[in-house]
């Protein structure tokens, strides 16, 4: 699956990226993570950062869920 982490580089955005990577590695999910830091690109999707986009759909925004919760979101 295609995962995008949207954020301009604030601490929360990094935390979300790390948590997502951890969830993927733990559950050996086949996914491709890209980071989107360009504000014009982010604005096309959401105005609340950080956000997590899975296969074109926003699943999380404005918060950093726990690795457990992310696992649930990604394996659904």
């Amino acid at each position: 699956m295609e995962i995008k982490v949207l954020g301009t580089g604030c601490p929360k955005c990094k935390a979300l990226e790390n948590a997502t990577r951890e969830a993927i590695e733990k559950n050996s999910i086949d996914a491709n993570i890209t980071k989107v830091t360009d504000i014009t690109e982010i604005m096309k999707v959401t105005m609340t950062t950080p956000a997590l986009v899975v296969d074109g759909k926003v699943v999380v925004k404005g918060r950093v869920p726990s690795v457990n919760e992310l696992t649930e979101l990604l394996t659904k």
Partner: peptide, 12 residues
């Protein structure tokens, strides 16, 4: 919810 890093996306 607001932090200084969300000021720009919010403004836009």
């Amino acid at each position: 919810p607001f932090c200084s890093c969300s000021a720009i996306p919010l403004f836009l």
